[in-house]
Amino acid sequence: MSKAIENISAERIAYLKKMKVRRIATWILRLLIVVLLFASWEIAADLKLIDSFVTSQPSRMVKTLINLYTNGNLLLHIGVTCLETVAGFIIGTILGTIVAIVLWWSEFTSHVLEPYLVVLNSLPKVALGPIFIIWIGAGPAAIIAMALAISLIVTILEVLNAFLQTDQDKIKLVETFGANRLQVFLKVVFPSNIPAMINALKVNVGLSWVGVITGEFLVSKAGLGYLIVYGGQVFHLDLVMTSVIILAAAAALMYQGVVLLQKKLSGGWFNHQP
């Protein structure tokens, strides 16, 4: 057996080679799809097969992008939206986890509040937009509130559910050593649910984006959501399309950030904390 590790078998080499070819092919195809899509879009618009006034056109989007950048507005808009999203995300995660801890702590409280959580969870949160604007004012704070409205309840329910599903025998084990409720939480419930909480984070990133863009649609003077709505109102499709694509890139980047965090935690200090 140990020999096989030293001199790799021919089958193994063939297999590894096959997997490498496959990986490269996958990436080439992925790139090809996006290149083809944009190229045909560009050509179809040039040939007047589609009306670039309503569909826009890649070359015009690039111009719009450069224009936005040179006017110094682009980074501001991206920055505002990202900041609101990160703020909504972090506040939603922390607040949601704290509420989940409180509800886990007191079974009676969580039982009392259960119907309210169910109602709030099923309510389309967008409906709360006007209320936030009146209460908080038409600004970034109202937009963050919108992001919170969308992500908070889901976070609470997800995290609470994970806490409640902690292996009862693991809890019994620490109780046999005389652990109190706080120790049960710190020694078992919290650490054993770190993976579940990171999964909640992943869902949360997406929801925060939804909340922020919704908020920006309703009220804003800057941000990608603002650009999209503004572009739509003045029928400036180049601006709308450009903003959507920037938005897609930003959201994907942030999601990858959480995935990276998850990898770090599950292979890093999470496994080595005292």
Binding site: D167, D169, K172, L173, F177, G178, Q183, K187, P191, P274
Partner: peptide, 23 residues
């Protein structure tokens, strides 16, 4: 208990001192 219920996120030593920690 029925199973060992060693915690995955602790080393063997850290598992062994769990009771001492709690007490």
């Amino acid at each position: 208990l029925q199973k060992d219920y060693l915690f995955d996120w602790r080393t063997i030593y850290q598992n062994v001192i769990l009771g001492l920690e709690i007490r």
